[in-house]
Every structure is written in structure tokens, then in C-alpha cells.
């Protein structure tokens, strides 16, 4: 079967973002962009399924501006076989992304779709679940372990109280949590090879999907700053302050 993995281009996790002065969003010009960390985990998982002989082909899909090709190239350099870019300069919200992914899924017929649990820019944590809903497929979110056998998968999920294991029918959507695996680095030869792997370019129009945003961002602000930085000289002083100044113990 094929594995389709969604890879989003986001502001790198090490960047401390700054809100724009006009409060329209955060500054992304000149900021380092990377693949969403959860999507690296998704690609890694798909590659491991391929190495086990369960998956024949790994397809990396990204949606957004032309620069998302770089994100797809990163996935190809890790070992994905080919890429699909749904190119648009429009703002894409998770519902629109899920509809576009559904259209790609209907063309490619994968046995499994892997998305990240959450994009670290919008922190939505929605797309995988929405895609599963639109396809009428099962969903295994926040996966920390994935085992595939014939027509089903057993997935261990990270939930609030600990871990939960479910069995889902395939095809299905799986969303990755941090501890599913540790993504590999692309080797130099693989980076070179990736340059020759194909990337198909589609558009929301060619897929017949209306991507008009449903949420309007009225403003983006900086949260209130904490006044931190004070130090105390001893444990006795700390306990005293917690009791008599902060009154929290």
C-alpha cells in the first residue's frame, strides 16, 4: 500500500516569533522555516513501514505557497519517493487543508495517511481528525506506537491519563505524537538524489475545493509579559517568601 504523509512548512521551532506592529499576524519575513516537527516524525514512520515491506511508496504532500517545495524536498531527502504540492497563496485553515488532502487521497488511494498531531504555528490540532471525518475513515490521534497487520492497525495513543491502545480498520488516518520515533537526518547522497525525485503540482481549483477561510483573524497580540528574574539567596529565604510574600504555601 501507499503511505501519504502531510508535511507543513512552519516557522522553525527554535525561533521566538514576534508579533507584527500592525497586529495583523506574526513576523515571518526573513525567519527560518522548517518542516513541522510532528511531520518529520510522520515521514520517519512511513519510511520505517516501507523498510518493513508494509508500505511500497511514501508520498509527501504539502499545501501552501511555492516555497513548500523546500519542505517536500526535505521529505524526499529523508527518503520519501515523490511529492505533491497543492500550490496556493491563499490562507489555508485546517478544514480547507483537510478537504484538499481528501481530494489528493481520492487520486492516490493510500492505505494510510499520516499527519502531525499539531502544527506548531497555528497549534490547531485538527487536520488529521477532519480528514478522517471527511473520508469516513477511522482516526488514531497522538500515536506513540503503530503496528500494522493486513487490514488493520494497532495504535498506542498518548492520552491525558497515560496510554491507550486502539485497533482501527485500514485505510485510516494516524496523527503523530513526539515519542512515535526519532526522525533520521538526510544524508548527503540522499539530498542529491532527492533533487531528481518528482513533485507534482496541483491547485485548489484543479482539485475543485473551495478554500475560503471560515475564521477571520481580527488581531494578533503579544501576551502580557511576566515580571520574572528575581533570585533568592537561600532555601530558607525562598520558603519564607512563599509563605509570607506570595502566600502560596
Amino acid at each position: 500500500m501507499k503511505a501519504l504523509v502531510a508535511v507543513k512548512r512552519v516557522v522553525d521551532f527554535n525561533v521566538k516569533v514576534r508579533v507584527k506592529a500592525d497586529r495583523s499576524g506574526v513576523e515571518t519575513a526573513g525567519v527560518k522555516m522548517s518542516m513541522n516537527p510532528f511531520d518529520e516524525i510522520g515521514i520517519e514512520e512511513a519510511l520505517r513501514l516501507k523498510e518493513k515491506g508494509i508500505v511500497e511508496e511514501v508520498i509527501a504532500v504539502s499545501l501552501g505557497a511555492g516555497q513548500c517545495q523546500e519542505t517536500i524536498r526535505t521529505a524526499l531527502a529523508m527518503g520519501a519517493d515523490r511529492g505533491v504540492l497543492v500550490e496556493t497563496d491563499a490562507e489555508l485553515q485546517p478544514l480547507a487543508v483537510a478537504k484538499l488532502l481528501k481530494a489528493v487521497v481520492l487520486q492516490e488511494n493510500p492505505g494510510i495517511v499520516i499527519t502531525g498531531k499539531q502544527a506548531i504555528d497555528d497549534d490547531c490540532n485538527q487536520t488529521g481528525q477532519m480528514l478522517a471525518a471527511l473520508l469516513g475513515w477511522p482516526q488514531a490521534t497522538f500515536a506513540s506506537k503503530l503496528a500494522i497487520a493486513e487490514d488493520h492497525a494497532e495504535v498506542t495513543r498518548e492520552v491525558d491519563g497515560g496510554l491507550e491502545t486502539i485497533r482501527i480498520r485500514l485505510p485510516a488516518v494516524v496523527t503523530t505524537d513526539l515519542r512515535l520515533n526519532e526522525p533520521r537526518y538526510a544524508s548527503l547522497p540522499n539530498i542529491m538524489k532527492a533533487k531528481r525525485k518528482p513533485i507534482a503540482i496541483l491547485s485548489p481549483e484543479s482539485l475543485g475545493v473551495d478554500v475560503a477561510p471560515r475564521l477571520k483573524t481580527l488581531k494578533v497580540e503579544e501576551p502580557a509579559k511576566r515580571q520574572g528574574g528575581k533570585k533568592v539567596g537561600s532555601v530558607a529565604e525562598l520558603v519564607d517568601k512563599l509563605k509570607n510574600e506570595a502566600r502560596v504555601i
Binding site: K16, V26, I120, D121, L215, K216, T217, L218, E221, P223
Partner: peptide
């Protein structure tokens, strides 16, 4: 709603 790990707060209106 907080975005970017709480480094920004977005005010959003749903239609």
C-alpha cells in the same frame, strides 16, 4: 486563542 506556543494571542471571528 493562543498560537505559536502562546507567544501570540489571536482574536478570531467565526462566520
Amino acid at each position: 486563542r493562543p498560537i505559536y506556543a502562546g507567544n501570540a494571542l489571536a482574536t478570531v471571528q467565526s462566520n
